[in-house]
Nucleic acid binder design. Structure first.
Lengths: 173, 173
DNA sequence: TTTTTATGATTAGCCAGCTAACTACTTTTG
DNA sequence: CAAAAGTAGTTAGCTGGCTAATCATAAAAA
C-alpha cells in the first residue's frame, strides 16, 4: 500500500476510500473521486487566472455586484446575503479590498449602523481587465466537449444536484 | 439586476458572469456554474458527514494513510507528500490530531529531525466508525444515476480532466 | 415613553490551505 | 575535515470560510 505516492489529494483518497471495499462496490467511490478530482483541477486553473489578476472568487463576485448595483453601491449586509457568506467574512473581504483602493466605505445618512460600500474607478478597472480573461478561461475549460456532450453533462449534473438536495433535506430531519 | 438575491454562491455568480455576455455565448459559462454548484453542494453534504464524526477530509485521509502504513506509522514529510499538501499544513493538522489523542508522535532513532507519527487505538476507532458512513454517503450521492449514466459521466469527466491538464500545462509556459 | 428585541458591522478565535522564515540536523561538496 | 547545501518539522502571517461575541443603532413591544 505504501508503494503508492501521489501529489494530488483526490487521487490519494482513491486508494483510501477503496480500502476495505470490494471491487464490485467501488463504482460510486470511483465516480465520487473522479468528480472531485476533475472539479478541483478545473477550479485550480480558474483560481490561478483570478490570482494573476489579484482576485479571488469572492472578490470578483463582490466587484461584479457593485458594478451592477445602483450607483455602484451596496451595504455589506446586502453583499453578504447575495454572496451567501456571513457578514464576518464579508467584513474581512471588504476591508482588504478597501485597502487596495477598489472600494470606498462611506456613512449612511439614513442609518448610523450602515456603511455603504462603493466601487472605485480602480476597482472597476480591475474588473474590466479580468472579464475577457474570465470568459476565455471558461470557454477554454470546456472546449473539448461537443454540444451534445454539453447537453448530456448538464443533464447529469442536474440529476445529481436534485438528488443531493433531497439527501441534504433528509439529513436536516 | 438587484431584484435577484441568492444564498448559494455559485448561483450568485451566474448572474455576474453572464453579465455582458450575449445569450449565444453563455453555454460554457452556465456549464461552469452548474458544475461548480453541483460539485460544491455535494461536497458540502459529504463534509457535513465528516464533521458529524469530528473529521475533516484531510484528517480522514491522514487517518487512512496511517491505518494502512507499516506499524501504522509515517513521517510528517511522507504524509505531506502523499496528501499533496505542505509540511506546514500537515504540521498543524497533526498537532490538532495529537491533541485529540488520535495519533502519537515519537522520536526517530535514525534521524533526529524526524518525528514519526503513529495511529492510536482511539484514532483507529474514529476511523472504523466513519468508514461505513463514508461508503453509504458516497453511494447515496450517486444513487439517482443508472449504470449507463455513470459510464457517461465518467467519460465526460475524463474528457474535461484531460483538457484541463492540457490547459494547465500551456499556462506554465 | 421605556424596555426589549432585532439588526449592521466589526473583531476574536478556529479551521485548513498557502508562503516564508527559522532552527536543528544530515548529507554533499570542496 | 570544514563548509556549503539540503532536509525535517515548526511557527508566523496571510487568506477566506465559519461561529460567537460585542457595541451601537433602530425597530418593536409593553
Amino acid at each position: 500500500m505504501e508503494k503508492f505516492s501521489f501529489v494530488d489529494r483526490p487521487s490519494n483518497q482513491r486508494i483510501q476510500l477503496m480500502n476495505g471495499i470490494s471491487k464490485n462496490d467501488s463504482t460510486n467511490v470511483e465516480l465520487f473521486l473522479n468528480f472531485q478530482w476533475t472539479y478541483r483541477n478545473m477550479q485550480k486553473v480558474y483560481d490561478s487566472i483570478l490570482n494573476e489578476n489579484d482576485l479571488s472568487e469572492s472578490r470578483f463576485i463582490i466587484l461584479m455586484f457593485l458594478k451592477n448595483a445602483s450607483n455602484h453601491e451596496l451595504l455589506p449586509s446586502v453583499i453578504s446575503e447575495k454572496l451567501g457568506a456571513t457578514r464576518a467574512t464579508v467584513s474581512k473581504l471588504l476591508k482588504a479590498m478597501e485597502t487596495k483602493g477598489w472600494i470606498i466605505k462611506s456613512s449612511s445618512t439614513t442609518d448610523k449602523r450602515s456603511i455603504p460600500v462603493q466601487l472605485t474607478t480602480k476597482g472597476s478597472k480591475i474588473l474590466e481587465k479580468f472579464l475577457p480573461k474570465n470568459f476565455n478561461t471558461v470557454n477554454q475549460l470546456f472546449s473539448s466537449l461537443t454540444n451534445e456532450e454539453i447537453k448530456q453533462f448538464t443533464y447529469l449534473l442536474s440529476k445529481i444536484q436534485k438528488n443531493t438536495q433531497k439527501f441534504a433535506s433528509e439529513m436536516e430531519k
